[in-house]
Write a protein that binds this DNA or RNA. Structure first.
Lengths: 185, 185
DNA sequence: AAAAATATGTACCAATTGGTACAATGACAA
DNA sequence: TTGTCATTGTACCAATTGGTACATATTTTT
């Protein structure tokens, strides 16, 4: 069902990158039209709710991606260890080895969080629950699993901040590697 | 030399909180005048360079604070272990046990970083150098110290992101405690 | 091909943006 | 008290903001 004209879903990845780069406030309509190549007419046709609906749609797409590629393997995979290993691989790729930043993290840090509180909250809550379950299934005690989960999710977010702040993506890959090895699966 | 009228330095903490809460783009002049209680006249008298100079001044103040309260104790304290322990205490207080976010992190994540690249970079570079030196002095091997430094700085930033995203400041305190204990000083 | 539905460009809108100009006010020292 | 300098409020500015209206394409369906 491919069309020549743009589809709503085609523009979501571009919107995602725009919001990552500029934040929600900084992503002005003119920036968005420039990056997507779509005029206001098209934009408001696809997203009648304006910027807020665009960001919501992006967050939804991100949620779906993580559900499929990260949370479900963690929760339901036969081998818990394999699910965890798969998570690290998926994360390394998703964040482009530290070249890409976490949109949810970007939104979370300032007052943009309040606009999208539910989606921001559940992004990390779902991830936490899934990883926690996997670690438990892999043999960790309840308390240890809980701590490890926080350390790993925090470690990922922090490594993204550091990598971008120092303009050195390798910081992310190195950190991810250590987080993984710390588990000696 | 206290004066009845406002001083430039009096307004810096307020500006800091405004930029934390709204980010650089989101901190409009009207938000700033509202939060500081100063009109544009005063604001542009103290900061002729406008918003950019305000943010620069805030970043400078932050840098000074960390130099005095974190980096120097790490670098020059007689007891390296005490310096590290002091760092954790200072950080726990500075970030108000997870109620406050890191302004440099906020700026780092989106394109605001490019405006303040030097200050963002050196905030983490200086911290990294100081902590690395302290860990080395405390007995860690070169490679181990380097990894630990990244883990600790990343862990702090990530914990701040998580705490704010989940709206649960305790995540920060818990993470900080584990990072500290991991060192068994 | 005609009709219906989808998609898009253009013009327009009030509100807000960051910033300037400047006169009036305040403090303070000679 | 007079003069100097720091401080502040107000009015103003062009540019941009997010958003709407709508007529015109462009597809898709019939």
């Amino acid at each position: 069902m491919a069309r020549l004209v743009a589809e709503r879903s085609d523009v979501l990845p571009v919107l995602g990158e725009v919001f990552r780069e500029h934040g929600f406030e900084g992503a002005s309509l003119s920036v968005i039209t420039g990056a997507t190549g779509l005029g206001k007419g098209s934009l408001y046709h696809f997203f009648p709710g304006g910027k807020e609906e665009m960001a919501m749609a992006v967050l939804d797409e991100i949620d779906t991606w993580f559900q499929v590629n990260v949370y479900q393997p963690l929760r339901d995979g036969q081998d818990a260890r394999a699910g965890i290993d798969h998570m690290f691989t998926a994360v390394e790729q998703y964040f482009r080895s530290g070249h890409r930043v976490c949109l949810v993290g970007v939104f979370a840090l300032n007052n943009t969080r309040d606009r999208f509180a539910d989606q921001v909250q559940s992004y990390f809550a779902d991830w936490t629950a899934a990883l926690n379950k996997a670690l438990t299934r892999a043999g960790y005690e309840t308390a240890a699993a809980r701590s490890l989960t926080e350390d790993i999710l925090g470690g990922i977010q922090g490594a993204l901040v550091l990598a971008r702040a120092m303009n050195d993506p390798k910081i992310f890959s190195r950190s991810l590697k250590r987080l993984r090895e710390q588990l000696d699966l």
